[in-house]
Simulated scan of single mutants.
Amino acid sequence: MDRSQAFQLVGVGLRTPHLDYFEHNANQVGWLEIHSENYFQTNSAEYQQLLAIREQVEISCHGIGLSLGSTSKVSQSHLLSLQQLIREIQPFVVSDHLSWSEHGGHYFNDLLPLPYTEEALQLFCRNVQQVQDAIQRPLLIENPSSYLRFNHSTIPEWEFLAEVQRQTDCRLLLDLNNVHVSCFNHQYDTNQYLAAIDPSTVDEIHLAGFTRKQLEQGEIWIDTHSARVSDEVWQLYEDWNRVNTPVPTLIEWDLDIPAPPVLLEEANKAIDILLEAPSSQTLRSA
């Protein structure tokens, strides 16, 4: 792999403070990720900027509001807005989370964990299939970060995620920071978690920073997306790419958003790691 190939694989999150920058500097990055719901209003100035940026660089649509784990079916109005965005932007991937955030018309400002049971598995697969039928393409499902788990769960998270993929033919978005955070919080084995993920089903990787917080009950790690990628997560990324085909990789930063050069520095770290990946492997580009 040469540097231009590695460059095309690495993207950063396109957040509102950086719209002006990337409208004029889109060539500084291989691709950009948007939060889909931020661009459902097609008459907004931000949407017009997105269209201008899309003319210059590939975009991925990362959803935070489908609430795929809810007992109710996915909102039809939400799906219609997503379909319209996909038609206009033609993203190279569309993704959402292994979580839920809506119940009875009430929306929560968080991505909440599921009970990992057979019933929840069937509900989640039903909702994933509903979205895939609507958008006429595979949906990428991202593994969550979590801070509590249900006592009545009967399926390990990694097996639940893999079974969703098998039953729906969706694809996976592997967030290595989320693996790192959740494994610490729940005392999971990181190697066991990653060993259960079929690399051929992974179409994207997320890298981000997290926050350590000390509580009376002990230390907890929180997936804040507010810092540079940790050394431990960089090591997970290096280990993954040592044995697996490189895929599009995102530097994710959502709080305490830094100036664009900081994001690009992080992107360059990912590029350097990809340059060390076995050059004989077939690349899956953005």
Rank of each mutant, 00 (worst) to 15 (best):
K73R: 12
P138L: 00
I271E: 04
L123W: 10
E58S: 07
L19A: 04
Q122H: 15
I251C: 08
V94K: 09
L66R: 02
P138W: 01
S77K: 14
Q235Y: 09
Q41N: 15
P278C: 05
H152V: 00
P17D: 13
G13L: 01
H103R: 12
A227S: 14
V10C: 08
Q214N: 12
S44A: 12
L215K: 15
A134E: 11
H78K: 09
A45V: 06
E276Y: 00
T211C: 12
E266I: 03
A45D: 11
G63I: 01
K213L: 13
N191L: 11
N127S: 08
A120N: 12
Y193R: 08
E232G: 09
S101K: 01
P144G: 02
Q192V: 12
K73V: 07
M1Y: 07
I197Q: 06
P199F: 04
E102S: 10
W234F: 15
I222Y: 10
I135R: 05
F22S: 05
E159V: 14
C61L: 04
E163A: 08
S95E: 03
A267W: 00
D169S: 14
Q76K: 14
A286R: 07
P138Y: 02
V10R: 04
A286S: 15
Q167V: 00
L114I: 06
E46Y: 12
E46V: 01
Q214W: 06
S182D: 11
H225P: 06
E252W: 00
L139M: 15
E119W: 07
L194F: 04
E118N: 13
V181T: 11
V164S: 04
V202I: 15
G13C: 09
Q49A: 13
S60P: 02
S77G: 04
R3C: 00
N109A: 10
V128Y: 00
S70R: 11
S36F: 02
G69S: 02
I89M: 05
T168A: 11
Y39E: 01
Q214G: 00
P113T: 07
H152A: 05
S226H: 14
V128T: 05
E88C: 04
R228Y: 09
R284Y: 11
Q83G: 06
I251G: 03
N38T: 06
H106S: 12
F22K: 01
S67P: 05
E276Q: 13
I155L: 13
R171M: 09
N43H: 14
E58Q: 15
S146Y: 14
Q136P: 01
V164H: 02
N241K: 09
T211H: 12
A259I: 10
S153G: 09
I273A: 00
L139G: 08
L283W: 11
P260W: 05
E119H: 14
Q136V: 13
S81R: 15
P17E: 10
C170W: 01
G218C: 04
R242P: 00
Q167W: 00
V74K: 01
A227D: 13
E37I: 11
E232I: 01
F108D: 09
R228K: 12
R137L: 05
S67D: 08
S4A: 14
V247N: 06
R242F: 08
V74I: 13
L255S: 14
P144R: 01
P258W: 08
I273E: 00
V74T: 12
L236P: 06
A270R: 05
N241G: 06
N25L: 02
A196F: 08
Q192T: 13
E204R: 09
E252I: 03
V128K: 01
S81N: 15
I155E: 03
V94G: 07
